[in-house]
């Protein structure tokens, strides 16, 4: 605390770093508080609007009702049939399986197209055509083929994850700097070595962007399949609530999906920051 503490440059640097870190921390806490304040403001506005305009709760329930619906779905044992956990588990499980399958296939086929011209020439037209097709429109066909069950959920999730992964891994691998390819060529590296050691890491930021999109799409695909007919899942919870005009119940399920979506997005981002530690500083 005394002036002797900052007598050496080293101490000075350390104190400066500390001060900057504290400043950043304060800023971040400030931002979070602002977000929370905004959220509370919105909820209050919602409640007031519902009361002032006398909106019937089967059109738009107030936040209090939604909260109650949420609570009654969450404050139950994990394996309760009336809670959110069982359907959420089903939705997430099938979305995750579809995501894994779709992401793997997308990466493989995207790599194949980027690496081999004939594969690109043969497959690109289909990729283009399917890319511009709203893939949700395929859902009824999938139901016909895979039935009203979990198979359709997985297939839809895989299908929707597949395309962003295909496009992104293709573009990412093609973005490899020619100089790095020259380096590997000068070392007589094999095609596989060049792919694994140079192209794949180069494509990593693209691949993570594809995964980030894919994780949301996988959830979307699963829900759509559940809408069209399934025995369990959050999509089923939503259609059942809708059938009895339990709009608060629908909202509660949407809140759950929103939170899950954000959590998955953050999970991808955190993983990305760990895996591609070099990218923000390098580019």
């Amino acid at each position: 605390m005394s002036t002797a503490d900052i007598s050496t440059p080293h101490d000075f640097a350390a104190r400066t770093m500390e001060r900057l870190a504290a400043q950043r921390r304060r800023q971040r806490i400030g931002n979070i508080l602002l977000t929370i304040a905004g959220m509370i403001g919105l909820l209050v506005l919602w409640q007031v609007a519902v009361q002032v305009f006398q909106v019937p709760s089967y059109i738009l329930p107030g936040p209090e009702r939604v909260f109650n619906a949420l609570w009654s779905g969450l404050a139950v044992p994990l394996d309760s049939r009336v809670g959110f956990y069982v359907p959420l588990g089903s939705t997430l499980g099938h979305a995750a399986l579809g995501f894994l399958i779709g992401a793997t296939l997308g990466l493989l086929l995207g790599s194949l197209m980027a690496e081999f011209r004939p594969a690109e020439i043969i497959l690109m037209p289909y990729a283009f055509a399917l890319q511009s097709l709203p893939k949700i429109a395929i859902a009824p066909l999938i139901i016909v083929w895979c039935g009203f069950g979990n198979g359709s959920k997985v297939v839809m999730a895989a299908l929707l994850t597949f395309f962003p992964m295909l496009v992104n891994s293709f573009a990412g691998i093609r973005s490899t700097e020619p100089e790095r390819l020259d380096l590997m060529k000068a070392l007589s590296a094999s095609r596989l070595q060049t792919y694994l050691r140079v192209k794949l890491p180069t494509a990593a930021p693209y691949i993570f962007a594809g995964l980030d999109m894919g994780v949301v799409y996988a959830l979307l695909g699963t829900i759509v399949a559940e809408f069209l007919g399934a025995q369990e899942g959050i999509g089923v919870v939503i259609t059942q609530a809708q059938a009895v005009t339990d709009v608060a119940g629908v909202f509660a399920a949407l809140v759950i999906l929103g939170v899950v979506g954000i959590a998955l997005h953050l999970l991808i981002k955190v993983t990305e920051r760990r895996v591609i530690h070099w990218s923000d500083r390098h580019k």
Binding site: E177, E179, R180, D182, L183, V198, P201, I276, S279
Partner: peptide, 10 residues
């Protein structure tokens, strides 16, 4: 090479 071309992930 003209630029160092060290691979940033290694």
């Amino acid at each position: 090479f003209q630029n160092a071309t060290l691979l940033p992930w290694m």
